[in-house]
Amino acid sequence: MARVAVVVFPGSNCDADTLAAAREAGSEAYYVWHRETDLQRADVVILPGGFSYGDYLRSGAIARFSPIMTAVAGHARAGGPVLGICNGFQILCEAGLLPGGLVRNARLRFLARPTWVRVEATDTPFTCLYEKGDVLEIPIAHGDGRYVADERTVAQLEASGQVVWRYVRDNPNGSTHEIAGVCNAARNVVGIMPHPERRNAPVLGGQDGARVFHAMEARHATQHAVDVRAVGDRHLRV
């Protein structure tokens, strides 16, 4: 069972759905309030969607300085998986844990509707159960979802396969290179604008997002078995 910390900021509103999706996938998920400084031995950290601090100044700009973010940055530096969904993605960009930034949608409107994204990279802790090229139907709900970065950064992201999801059919917010999600150079920190936690069961209209959460559990199980073998064959798990 992977221990999954779902960080709650004032104004988070997808924390309960995210916690439920992680539990549904078999993880031991729990909330961590943003004023705390300890992630309680988390294997995976998720920054959920919402409108932390009312999106004041810029989306994610103030949450990025919450006390818990020091521990999140430490977890990321140590190679621990971190997923930012929507506002969580914005916070990770503001914190410098992911390259680029997210600005106002090109056509101004707040968009809450399904989108289609293609999985472009499967070598991340959150996409390892998908096939490259899979097209997923996952909804968005954002006003500031247009991913931007300077030309050099975008070229670098493309060259090193750090674009994890890309919008297909249409680009809802005008993001550069149709980017819907990216990862850092070490590939353990991942951000996505659409909400996989809102598509993890047929009753929600589909389950294209479920494997994001199953991946955390699958990866944890594999990693654990490897760790045990490394200690000695006597403790090899069957």
Binding site: L57, R58, A61, I62, V103, V148
Partner: peptide
Amino acid sequence: RLLANPVT
């Protein structure tokens, strides 16, 4: 540090 985002 806070008031402006150097990326955007």
